[in-house]
Design a protein around this nucleic acid. Structure first.
Lengths: 332, 332
DNA sequence: CTCTAAAATTGAAACGATTCAAAAAAAGTA
DNA sequence: TACTTTTTTTGAATCGTTTCAATTTTAGAG
């Protein structure tokens, strides 16, 4: 910067003013400085700027699976709004791993990000507590949080679970299977809770629960093979998967490995309504979440927390919506 | 940090040594300092560290479409290796927009990232030139680069185009349609070039080219509707899409909007072999690229450039591989 | 116990921006 | 012209690390 100052024949302070408060500087001087910047190819060192400022115009986003289109869309929503507000978004992929989640939080903290959007893998409250204790502004996404400590943006997963299971039961299915990622994943727990609630209205129906190691296509395929091998009396006639990736895997296995017909023999419904859901072998019914809106709302809340003096923590909950396609329709 | 030093009863320099060169410090002292760090909840300020170091252990990655699973996988490959080498990866999504690409480059430059992995939208050489001129270490991904200036990791797109089109022609298709994103997108240009080369071996076959506004499902659907509306004599009997997202869109439109049978009336093949390709309504043939490997190799090259004094720029080119599924098979 | 070599510790300087009180220049007024 | 007010410009101090030459402590040898 001092090179620029020398070349433009002004002081360092003036160069800084041109960069940050151009209106305080005489127009002629601005031009001189800008020409010098241009000629020297000067680019401000953000580390020094941050060091002085104490924080940065960057938002950290920690997601459990960046290759899940749902989170990719959520990230896109967040990024678009952030850019409009002149913030940058850094994405960290925890891969549903607690220690990886921690190291991203540390990395972001070291970088003194303005704040963090996070969809915690497990132990939400513990994580919130920790972030709060570290003095990091955080918005919980896709999970409800304790209103007193921070903001959150979520979708009512219990309602989503009810929607999906009620639809299957309404279609006359008697034995529902729920396929999801185990009790450490909150989304799974809530969606299953919705199923359980709904089952109370159908006392004759039966529920089986299958646990996957991860929430992706491959893990779904494993469960699909397992289901296909069950004797006819033990086999469910309706499968609800905790996300579409798992549903796609289960469907693949049922159709190709076990020659089971969807929806005739087994009706299926997924969750997230990713772009591909309508393009699967049998178009997949799903529960739609406003992924884009989740991301942008989260950024909105975070920026409000950073900038508004009278900010109060808010919990925004969106309602999911069922999208019915061929995979879950009643057999004629 | 001075608080930590005071609490541990040592100097600031010692605290720094504990953090960075623990072996230079007596084990007992290390313990004292670590306890102090623990108790005070101290987190190093990365801005100051970077300011001193002049650069950061961060790698910027600029992709044209983060919601394309191909790039999501590539990013994952990059991230995994980077983490193993204790680098962090920041992802910027240019959305195939030149100015957005520029602003990410500037952001990364301001942050003094160690280097940049980039899949430039257009004008590759101009962009390489610019990065080189700015003194930014860069590796071009998914595109070959001028060997004298920087490294690159790519897949032979011309070969991929040949593979796909030869397969369709071998199956007896006479009128091939190529669907891709226009001449500004290098991948499209190269894959089409492959098609053109291969057509020379089949002088009786015909080629039509359709241009999409973007390279996603929605854009593909539009072209699919267009193709479906063509009179039978003008309609292609083999469609090669420049990526799987577009192929999925085209397939949706053909099947649902126009009731055209795949592969009986129109054979289809996509590109990238994303996870979903085998789960589409009619399982989609595709050209597989080693997406994960692309990402990790790029990181490898970049880190070598940063750390090895005798680094020489290398161009790594992988060969694509055809994956044949139902969508392109000959009608019995 | 003394001397020497090795290991551990110290703390001032440097990184490159922003800030702000003070100085200088310009504009306005009598 | 002389003085006041407003606008611009200046540059030293600051942010929190890392580095490295100098100093102190410890270990080893005789």
């Amino acid at each position: 910067m001092s090179d620029v100052a020398k070349k433009a024949g002004v002081s360092i302070g003036t160069v800084s003013n041109v960069l940050n408060h151009a209106n305080r500087v005489k127009p002629g001087t601005v031009k001189k400085v800008q020409r010098a910047i241009e000629e020297l190819g000067f680019v401000r060192n953000d580390a020094a700027r941050q060091l002085k400022a104490g924080n940065s115009r960057t938002i950290g986003l920690v997601v459990p699976d960046a290759s899940n289109p749902f989170f990719a869309d959520l990230a896109k929503g967040a990024e678009n709004l952030a850019i409009a507000r002149e913030f940058a978004v850094i994405i960290g992929n925890s891969s549903e791993d607690n220690s990886r989640e921690s190291s991203y939080i540390n990395l972001f903290h070291e970088q003194r990000v303005g704040g963090v959007l996070i969809s915690p893998v497990r132990g939400v409250n513990k994580r919130i507590e920790q972030l709060h204790h570290m003095g990091i502004n955080a918005v919980i996404v896709d999970r409800e949080a304790d209103a007193t400590i921070c903001c959150s943006v979520s979708v009512d997963d219990v309602a989503g679970g009810r929607l999906a299971s009620r639809h299957l039961l309404d279609q006359g299915r008697k034995h529902i299977a729920f396929v999801g990622g185990g009790p450490s994943i909150q989304q799974t727990v809530d969606r299953l809770e919705g199923v359980r609630q709904e089952m109370l209205n159908f006392p004759k129906a039966r529920l089986s629960v299958f646990e996957t190691s991860e929430m992706n296509v491959l893990a779904g395929r494993k469960v699909g093979i397992e289901i296909g091998k069950l004797p006819a009396t033990e086999r469910p006639d309706g499968v609800f998967c905790a996300n579409d990736l798992v549903a796609v895997g289960v469907m693949q296995a049922l159709l190709f490995e076990n020659s089971i017909k969807v929806p005739e023999q087994i009706a299926m419904i997924g969750y997230d309504d990713i772009d591909f859901a309508q393009s699967t072998i049998v178009p997949l019914s799903s529960v739609r979440q406003p992924s884009h809106l989740l991301g942008s709302s989260a950024v909105e809340l975070l920026i409000s927390e950073l900038q508004d003096v009278d900010h109060v923590h808010r919990q925004i909950t969106f309602q999911p919506e069922i999208v019915i396609r061929e995979s879950s329709l009643r057999t004629k």
